[in-house]
Computed example of a mutant assay.
Amino acid sequence: MQLVRNTFERYNGVYGYQQVQLFLYQDKGAWMNHKKVLRLMQKMGLRSRARRKYRCNRKWNNGDRAVRNILNRRFHAGAPNQKWVTDITQYRVGDT
Protein backbone atom coordinates (compact mmCIF):
# COMPACT_ATOMS: atom_id res chain seq x y z
CA MET A 1 0.00 0.00 0.00
CA GLN A 2 2.85 2.37 0.83
CA LEU A 3 4.47 1.71 -2.53
CA VAL A 4 1.23 2.60 -4.35
CA ARG A 5 0.78 5.74 -2.23
CA ASN A 6 4.37 6.89 -2.85
CA THR A 7 4.05 6.37 -6.61
CA PHE A 8 0.70 8.18 -6.67
CA GLU A 9 2.08 11.15 -4.72
CA ARG A 10 5.29 11.27 -6.76
CA TYR A 11 3.23 12.26 -9.81
CA ASN A 12 1.13 14.76 -7.82
CA GLY A 13 -2.03 12.68 -7.91
CA VAL A 14 -2.59 13.34 -11.59
CA TYR A 15 -2.70 9.75 -12.85
CA GLY A 16 -5.25 6.99 -12.32
CA TYR A 17 -4.76 3.37 -11.38
CA GLN A 18 -3.58 2.18 -14.79
CA GLN A 19 -0.79 4.74 -15.03
CA VAL A 20 0.15 4.19 -11.38
CA GLN A 21 0.47 0.46 -12.13
CA LEU A 22 2.72 1.25 -15.10
CA PHE A 23 4.89 3.64 -13.07
CA LEU A 24 5.19 1.07 -10.25
CA TYR A 25 6.76 -1.29 -12.74
CA GLN A 26 8.91 1.32 -14.49
CA ASP A 27 10.18 3.13 -11.40
CA LYS A 28 10.29 0.44 -8.72
CA GLY A 29 10.34 -2.76 -10.78
CA ALA A 30 7.31 -3.99 -8.82
CA TRP A 31 4.76 -5.77 -11.02
CA MET A 32 1.23 -5.56 -9.68
CA ASN A 33 -2.06 -6.28 -11.41
CA HIS A 34 -4.00 -3.14 -12.34
CA LYS A 35 -7.10 -4.45 -10.52
CA LYS A 36 -5.09 -4.79 -7.32
CA VAL A 37 -3.74 -1.25 -7.72
CA LEU A 38 -7.33 -0.04 -8.20
CA ARG A 39 -8.51 -1.86 -5.06
CA LEU A 40 -5.65 -0.46 -2.98
CA MET A 41 -6.20 3.07 -4.26
CA GLN A 42 -9.91 2.83 -3.48
CA LYS A 43 -9.15 1.53 0.01
CA MET A 44 -6.78 4.44 0.66
CA GLY A 45 -9.15 6.97 -0.93
CA LEU A 46 -6.71 7.99 -3.67
CA ARG A 47 -8.36 9.43 -6.77
CA SER A 48 -6.75 11.09 -9.73
CA ARG A 49 -7.52 14.72 -10.41
CA ALA A 50 -9.86 15.26 -13.32
CA ARG A 51 -8.05 17.21 -15.99
CA ARG A 52 -9.83 19.99 -17.83
CA LYS A 53 -10.76 19.41 -21.42
CA TYR A 54 -9.01 21.69 -23.87
CA ARG A 55 -11.23 24.48 -25.05
CA CYS A 56 -10.37 26.94 -27.74
CA ASN A 57 -10.24 30.36 -26.11
CA ARG A 58 -9.91 32.42 -29.27
CA LYS A 59 -12.78 34.40 -30.65
CA TRP A 60 -13.02 34.45 -34.40
CA ASN A 61 -13.66 37.74 -36.07
CA ASN A 62 -16.15 36.79 -38.77
CA GLY A 63 -15.64 40.13 -40.49
CA ASP A 64 -12.20 38.98 -41.60
CA ARG A 65 -13.37 35.59 -42.79
CA ALA A 66 -16.71 36.31 -44.47
CA VAL A 67 -16.83 37.84 -47.91
CA ARG A 68 -19.48 40.34 -48.97
CA ASN A 69 -22.56 38.76 -50.60
CA ILE A 70 -22.47 40.42 -54.02
CA LEU A 71 -24.95 38.12 -55.78
CA ASN A 72 -27.55 38.37 -53.00
CA ARG A 73 -29.09 35.09 -54.26
CA ARG A 74 -29.58 36.39 -57.80
CA PHE A 75 -27.94 33.52 -59.67
CA HIS A 76 -29.52 34.05 -63.10
CA ALA A 77 -27.11 35.43 -65.67
CA GLY A 78 -27.96 36.90 -69.06
CA ALA A 79 -24.98 35.25 -70.80
CA PRO A 80 -22.34 32.61 -69.96
CA ASN A 81 -19.31 33.50 -67.80
CA GLN A 82 -20.93 36.52 -66.13
CA LYS A 83 -21.42 34.99 -62.67
CA TRP A 84 -19.20 32.33 -61.20
CA VAL A 85 -19.85 30.79 -57.76
CA THR A 86 -18.26 28.01 -55.76
CA ASP A 87 -18.58 26.30 -52.40
CA ILE A 88 -15.64 27.15 -50.14
CA THR A 89 -16.56 24.96 -47.16
CA GLN A 90 -13.44 24.04 -45.22
CA TYR A 91 -12.91 20.84 -43.28
CA ARG A 92 -10.36 20.73 -40.51
CA VAL A 93 -8.17 17.64 -40.63
CA GLY A 94 -5.75 16.83 -37.84
CA ASP A 95 -4.15 19.71 -35.95
CA THR A 96 -4.14 22.17 -38.83
Rank of each mutant, 00 (worst) to 15 (best):
R47S: 12
S48F: 11
N69G: 02
K53V: 08
D64S: 14
D64F: 15
K59I: 11
W84K: 07
N12I: 14
G45N: 08
D95F: 08
Q26P: 02
L46A: 03
M1F: 11
T7C: 10
E9S: 01
R52S: 12
T89W: 07
L22V: 12
Y15C: 00
N72C: 01
K36L: 13
T89K: 10
R73L: 09
M44Y: 04
Q2A: 13
R73P: 00
Q82Y: 07
D95C: 07
R68H: 12
A30V: 15
R73E: 02
N69P: 00
R65L: 06
R65K: 08
F8T: 07
W84D: 00
L46S: 03
M1W: 09
I70N: 04
V37W: 00
F75H: 04
K35Q: 04
R52N: 12
L38R: 05
M1K: 06
R5Y: 10
K59P: 05
E9K: 00
R39W: 13
F23V: 06
A77D: 09
N81P: 05
Q21R: 04
R73C: 08
Q19F: 03
H76G: 07
R92G: 04
N81E: 13
R52A: 14
K53E: 00
Q2V: 12
D64K: 15
N12R: 15
M41G: 05
D27S: 01
C56G: 04
R55T: 02
K43C: 11
T86D: 04
R51F: 03
Q19K: 15
I70H: 06
A79Y: 05
M44W: 04
T89M: 09
M32N: 02
K28H: 12
Y17N: 03
V67D: 03
D64P: 11
Q18D: 06
N62Y: 13
R65N: 03
Y54R: 11
L38H: 05
N6E: 15
K36V: 14
V14C: 08
R52L: 14
I70M: 06
Y91R: 05
G63M: 06
K53F: 02
F75I: 03
N57C: 09
R5H: 06
G94K: 04
L3N: 13
G94F: 10
L46C: 01
Y25G: 07
K36F: 12
Y11H: 14
K28I: 14
D95K: 11
M32P: 01
Y15E: 04
A66V: 12
L38Q: 07
V4E: 10
K28G: 10
A79S: 11
F8Q: 05
A79V: 11
A79P: 02
R39D: 15
R65C: 05
Q21F: 01
W31N: 09
F75M: 03
A66E: 14
Q90D: 14
M1I: 10
L22Y: 08
N6R: 13
L46H: 02
G45F: 01
K59Y: 12
I70C: 01
G78V: 13
G13H: 03
N12E: 13
Q18C: 13
S48Y: 08
R47P: 04
L22P: 01
Q21S: 14
V93Y: 10
N33F: 03
N61G: 00
I70W: 05
W84S: 02
T86Y: 02
V37G: 01
T86W: 00
N33C: 09
I70A: 07
K35W: 09
G29C: 07
R10Q: 12
P80Q: 08
D95Q: 09
A50W: 05
Q21N: 10
M44Q: 04
